[in-house]
Simulated assay, not measured.
Amino acid sequence: MPEAPDAATAWQWLLERRPNTRGYLTDELVEIVHAAHAEPRLRALYPFPSHGGLHFLRGLPGEVRPGERLPHVLYGPPPYTVYSSDFTELGEVATAEEAVALLVAHLPPEPRQPRPRQH
């Protein structure tokens, strides 16, 4: 399956259920994708459905370095189970919106960008 070239395109493909892309046949993914897309911090990440979960990446698939895992949510009929970056269960919630709130509450801070050197 083709991977989207950037996060914005990946979100667009998920939202429109573009044929032959990751997750397009999975009806259970729709509700959690819409809830996650409504959250700016998650919308800035690359959404990556895989192995029954909606994962989030800071870069493109294949570019993620060890130690850069983020929380994810298992999709399917409610309740939704949210896991930390180390696969510890964070909780089980009744709605997609609650799952997104739990995900966001456990996102690590954005990586710090190096400051430009002043001469």
Rank of each mutant, 00 (worst) to 15 (best):
S84R: 09
P116V: 03
Q12S: 13
P49E: 06
T9E: 15
P40G: 04
G91Y: 04
V64A: 12
G52T: 07
Y80W: 10
A8P: 02
T81S: 12
Y83G: 05
G53T: 12
Q113P: 01
M1H: 10
R41C: 03
G52L: 10
G23F: 00
P66A: 05
A101V: 02
G53S: 15
P66E: 01
L25Y: 11
A44L: 04
R58N: 03
P71G: 08
V100T: 03
W11K: 02
G53P: 05
T88E: 14
T9M: 10
R65G: 03
P40T: 00
A38H: 07
P61S: 11
T26I: 14
E31G: 14
Y83M: 11
R43Q: 13
P61D: 11
T9V: 12
P77A: 15
S84E: 08
F87G: 10
R18E: 12
S50F: 11
A8K: 08
P79R: 03
E16F: 06
P111N: 04
H106I: 09
S85R: 15
R17T: 07
E28I: 07
A35T: 05
M1P: 08
G53A: 15
G91I: 08
P47D: 06
G23Y: 00
A38T: 02
F48L: 11
T26Q: 12
E63Y: 09
W11V: 04
E68S: 06
E39R: 06
A38K: 08
L14D: 02
H106W: 04
V100E: 00
R43C: 08
R115P: 05
P19T: 01
T81A: 12
L42R: 01
P111G: 04
V82S: 01
L74Q: 13
E31I: 09
N20C: 10
P61H: 11
V104Q: 00
V100I: 03
L14F: 04
E68G: 00
A4N: 00
A38V: 04
R117F: 11
P2K: 00
E89A: 14
R112P: 06
P71L: 09
T81I: 12
Y75H: 14
E16Q: 13
S50L: 12
G76A: 05
R58L: 08
V64S: 12
A8M: 01
A7W: 02
Y80I: 07
G23V: 02
M1G: 10
D27K: 14
P77I: 11
R117K: 13
G23I: 00
E68A: 09
D86N: 14
E31R: 12
E28L: 13
G59E: 11
A36H: 02
V73H: 04
V93N: 09
P116D: 03
P47Q: 07
E110V: 11
E68I: 01
L42W: 00
P49L: 10
T21D: 06
P108Y: 01
P114C: 07
P5G: 13
P19M: 06
P47N: 07
T95L: 09
A35N: 04
P109Q: 08
L14N: 01
H34V: 10
E39H: 10
N20D: 13
G59H: 11
P114L: 08
E68V: 04
F87R: 15
Y46K: 01
E110A: 15
E31Q: 11
L14E: 02
L60C: 06
S84I: 05
P49V: 08
V30H: 10
R43G: 03
Q118C: 11
W13C: 03
L60S: 03
A36D: 06
H119S: 13
R22K: 10
S50P: 05
F87D: 14
E3F: 14
L102F: 07
